[in-house]
Design a protein around this nucleic acid. Structure first.
Lengths: 191, 191, 191, 191
DNA sequence: AATGAATGAGGATTCATTCAT
DNA sequence: GATGAATGAATCCTCATTCAT
C-alpha cells in the first residue's frame, strides 16, 4: 500500500538514524544496511531516497550543522548586550542538544569526512565561517582584536568538542566554563 | 637481495608510509596494500612484520605521539624560567615536525581511531595525560588556577590542530600566536 | 530476474552443490566460490544465505545424515520380525542413495570435520547414537550381547563406508553381504 | 657450523613432527611452518630436505604404514598356530604404538589424502593389500571363506580405527575385543 | 647446512549498489 | 512505494615456495 508524501518522513528517519548510528559506532565505517535497519526500512529504499551513501552522510551533516546554527541564532536574537551575544554563542555550542554524545561524535566524524568529500567540506566551511562571522561581529565592540579573538574562541570550542568526543572532559558545564574563562581573560587583556 | 636485520628498517618504513598515506588520503580507509606499496614492499611482508592492519596503525600512532612527546621534552629541559616551560610546550606542539600536514592529519585520524581501538585509546590517553601533567607543573608557580588553565590550553592546542587538519588556519605561526595569546591572557587574569 | 521465496531453493541448491563438490574433490579444501558456481550463483549470495563456509558445511552434513536416518526409519517401520529390523538398518546403510559415491565421500569428510568443528561433532554424535540405539533395540530380542554386537556392527558399517570412499570395495552389494554375514555369524554364536 | 649427515636426522624429525602436528590438529590443514617449528627448524629447511609439502606428508604416511606393517610382521613370525597368526595381526593393529591417538588421527587423515594424492593412494593401497594378503593366508587353513572373511575383518579394523579417531570407542582393549569376537564368530560359522 | 627475507596467488568475507517484482 | 535478490569489486590475511646470504 503505497503511501503519499512518504519521502520527507523517510529522509528524516534516515538522517536521524545516520547520526545515531555514527554516534553509537564511533566510526565512519558504518554500512548503509545498518542505517536503513535502524530507520526501519530496507537498504534499497535508502538508496532510492538518497542517491548513495555519501548523500546520506551529507544530509546528516547538514542536519547537524543547521541545528547548531539554529540554536545559536535563537539565542543570539534574544541577546541585547554585546558580551551577551558572545556568551549566547558559547551557550549554544554547549547546549544539551548540541553537546549530546551522539551528535558530538557525528560532528567529529564529519570533520573528517570534510577532508574527502567536497560536499561535506563545503558544508563545514560554511558553518565555520558563519560562526566566525557571528563571533567577530559580537566581539568588535568589546575586543581590541576581534578577528584574532574570534579565531581563538572558535578553535577552543572545537578543541573542547574534540576532547568531549573522546570522553575526556565529561560535562558540558565544564566545557562551557573553560570557554567563558578564556573569553573573560581575552577581554580583560584587551582593555 | 635479502639482507639480515631488515626488520627494524622495514618496520620504520611501514610506519612512515602509514603516516604519509594517512595524511595524503585523509581517511582511515587506506588499505594495507597502499601502505606496503608506498613503503616499497609487498602487503604480505607488511603482515609478516606486523601482525595485521591494526598493529601497523598502532605503531604509527605510537611513533607520532612519541615524537611529539620527545620534541616537548627536549625543549622542556632547556627551559629555565617557569613561563618558559609552558612556552616550550606550546613551541613543541607547533614545531615544524609536529605541525607537518601529514602528521597532523594522521594525528587527527588517530583521535578517531581511539574511539574504536582500545589500543589506540590507551596510547592517546597516555599522551594526553602526560601533556596535561607537564602543563600543570609548569603552570603551578605562575597561575592561580593551574589545573583549569592546563585543561584550557590543552583543549586549545587540540582545537588548533583540528582546524589545521582541515586546512583552515594555514601557518603554524598563527596557531602558535593564538596559543601564546591565551596563555598571556590567562596569566594576567590570574594575578 | 529475482523472484520471491528464493531462499529455500538457494539453500537447497547450495547444500546439494556442496555434497557434489566435496565428493568430486575428495577434500574439505573446496572454496565457497566453487560451491556457489556449481550451484549457479555468486559466492556473495552463498554467504548471504548462510553465515559463512562453516554453516554451509554444517547444513550439508545435516542433510546427509538426516537422509541416512530417514531412509533407515522408513524401512524400519515396515519390518515385522526382529531380525528384519536389523537387516533393514543394514539395508538402509547400503541403499543406492546412501551409497552414492559423492555422498559417501562427503560423509567421510564430515567425519573428519567433526574433529575440528563442534557443530559437526554434535551432528555426527547425534546420528551415531541414534544408529546404535536402533541397532541395540533391534538386537535385544535376538542377541545374547546386544550392546557389543550393536557396536561391532556399527563399526563394521563405518569401515565398509570408509573402504568404499577409497574406491576399494566397489559395489554396495558386496558391502551389504559382508555386513549380513557378520550379523548371521554373531547371532549364531549368540545362541 | 654445518654438520655432516644431518639429512636423515632432519628428515626423521620432520616426519615425527608431521604426525604429531596432524594428530594434534585433527586436520590436514596444517602449515609447513607449524611442522618445521615443531621439528625445531625453519620452514625453508623443511623445503630443502623434502621437495614440498606433499612430499613431507607422503614420507610421514609411509612411516606410519611401515610401522604398522613392521609391528604386524614381528608378531606374525612368532605365531605358530594358524589362528594365532590372525590374532597376531589383530593384536598388532591395536598395539599401543599403533593405537596411539596421534598416529590414529594421522592414519585417518592419510586415508583422506589418498583420494587426492596419487602417491598417498599408492602407499595406502599397498599397505591394505599386504594386510589382506596376510589375513587371507592366515585364514585359509581355518576358514571356509578366507577371502570374504579377510575382507570383513579388514573393514572392521578400519571401522574401529575410524571410531577411535573420533574419540568414541575409548580403549584399544575394547576394540581388540570386538575384532576377536567377530573372528570367533566367523570361524564358528565357517565350520 | 641453515635461515631470514620476500612474494604471488588465492580465499573468505563484506558492502554499496542495481534490478525485477 | 518498497523490498528481496543478486553481484562485482575490494580487502585482509595466510601460505607454500624461492632466494640470497
Amino acid at each position: 500500500m503505497p503511501k503519499l508524501g512518504m519521502e520527507p518522513i523517510r529522509r528524516a528517519a534516515l538522517v536521524e538514524a545516520t547520526i545515531a548510528e555514527l554516534g553509537a559506532a564511533g566510526t565512519l565505517d558504518i554500512t548503509v544496511s545498518q542505517i536503513a535497519k535502524r530507520a526501519g526500512m530496507s537498504s534499497a529504499l535508502a538508496h532510492h531516497y538518497f542517491g548513495g551513501k555519501e548523500d546520506i552522510f551529507a544530509a546528516a551533516m547538514q542536519h547537524i550543522l543547521s541545528e547548531l546554527r539554529q540554536e545559536g541564532l535563537d539565542q543570539l536574537t534574544r541577546a541585547r548586550h554585546p558580551i551577551d551575544r558572545v556568551r549566547a554563542i558559547i551557550e549554544a555550542s554547549f547546549s544539551p542538544s548540541s553537546f549530546d554524545p551522539d551528535t558530538i561524535n557525528a560532528w567529529m566524524l564529519f570533520y573528517l569526512m570534510a577532508r574527502t568529500s567536497p560536499k561535506a567540506a563545503r558544508l563545514l566551511r560554511l558553518y565555520q565561517s558563519r560562526l566566525r562571522t557571528h563571533l567577530r561581529h559580537a566581539l568588535r565592540p568589546i575586543s581590541a582584536r576581534p578577528e584574532a579573538d574570534a579565531e581563538t574562541l572558535a578553535a577552543l570550542i572545537d578543541g573542547l568538542y574534540l576532547r568531549a568526543s573522546l570522553g575526556r572532559t565529561g560535562s558540558a558545564g565544564e566545557a562551557r566554563a573553560h570557554a567563558n574563562a578564556v573569553l573573560e581573560a581575552l577581554l580583560e587583556t584587551s582593555t
